[in-house]
Simulated assay, not measured.
Amino acid sequence: MSATIYLVGAGGQLGKALRASDKASARVRALTSADIDITDEASVANALAGLGAGDVILNCAAYTDVDGAESDVGRAFAVNRDGPGHLARMSAGSGARLIHVSTDYVFAGAAATDDAPPRTVPYEPADVTGEPETVYGASKLAGERIVFDTDPTATVVRTAWVYTGAPTSSDFVGTMRRLESARPDITVVNDQTGSPTYAPDLADGLWELVSTDPDGPAAGVMLHATNAGSVSWYEVARAVFEELGADPERVRPCTTDEFPRPAPRPAYSVLSGASWTTAGLTPLRDWRAALQAAVTGDRTGRG
């Protein structure tokens, strides 16, 4: 019998992309927050009552309000640390496979100082994370640790700057699309560097991971998966304007200090894709081609 894929967080941004992917397993059991409360061990046990050896838990549920987490610490840790721990206990106890999605925010990504130059080398999974500067990052790092401590055969996939780019979406690309028609010009930070990741591309990559040998090179390891390349938020905004046929000069740069937020953002959080390819998985395409696909609606997005 084919494995059942328990998709946890099926109602979120990535969960919806996983469900919509043409690579999705025919045996997906989509679990939204109405079906499972990952912070409640009894709810987890009930929702995963049929879990058995060979099945897969694909967890993309998370508390992702980076600024909100600063004042909602208990909830952030309950969802991002305790929830994955409950899922890991289920996978370890049943022989099922757990794939858990994490974030670039686990790295401190500190800005340059008088004593240290800015980082320019993408992070590998084995790199020391340091102390995350946000509650969100700290809670996700704690989640990674509890997953591996509880189920050493699990796979954790870090990603970054995930978006769908839909005109009505609240992600960065969707917001830039709306602002282009609403304002004569906009100001965007130019000193935060990362790897924008198109949710449908990440979803396809995760389905490829699900299809691999559960005892293969991806078992019990940390992987990084983002669209290729690195860029600043300012450059992403300019690219969105270009795809819309608008003048990119209407996007003006500013510094992080000029645009303060409750939660400090990493100055540099680019993730290396080497671990993904080493595990035998297909690299995600370049960020620019993916952005074109998101804005134009053409999934091929050649750039």
Rank of each mutant, 00 (worst) to 15 (best):
G12H: 09
A17N: 06
N80K: 09
A218N: 09
V28H: 03
D215T: 14
A294H: 02
A111V: 03
V147N: 02
D185Q: 11
A34L: 12
R183Q: 13
A3G: 15
R288C: 03
G74E: 12
A219L: 11
F107H: 02
G174M: 00
R19W: 05
Y63T: 09
A225C: 14
A47P: 06
D171H: 02
V270K: 00
T4M: 11
A78L: 11
L48M: 08
A30P: 02
Y105C: 07
T103S: 15
G93M: 07
D22H: 14
P262W: 11
D191Q: 01
P117G: 00
D104Q: 03
S25C: 06
T164H: 01
D127F: 02
I5F: 08
N59W: 11
K23M: 13
G297M: 04
K140D: 10
E131I: 11
V157L: 01
L179Y: 10
D215G: 14
V240I: 10
E235N: 14
A219D: 06
K140W: 10
T39W: 07
T226K: 06
G68Y: 14
A62G: 12
L206Y: 09
A53Y: 12
A53H: 13
D55R: 03
H224P: 05
D204S: 15
A34T: 14
P196D: 04
A61W: 14
T64W: 11
R183L: 15
A61Y: 11
D213I: 08
A69R: 09
D104E: 11
V270W: 00
G52V: 13
P248G: 06
R238I: 07
T120M: 07
W233A: 12
D247W: 01
R29A: 10
T212G: 08
G9W: 05
K23A: 15
N190H: 09
A279R: 04
T175D: 06
P214W: 10
R75E: 14
T32Y: 11
G174W: 00
T113R: 00
D65A: 15
G83A: 10
L281S: 00
D82N: 14
L223E: 08
Y123Q: 01
L87V: 08
G205N: 06
R302G: 09
D67V: 15
D114E: 12
M222H: 13
D37W: 04
G74R: 14
A218F: 05
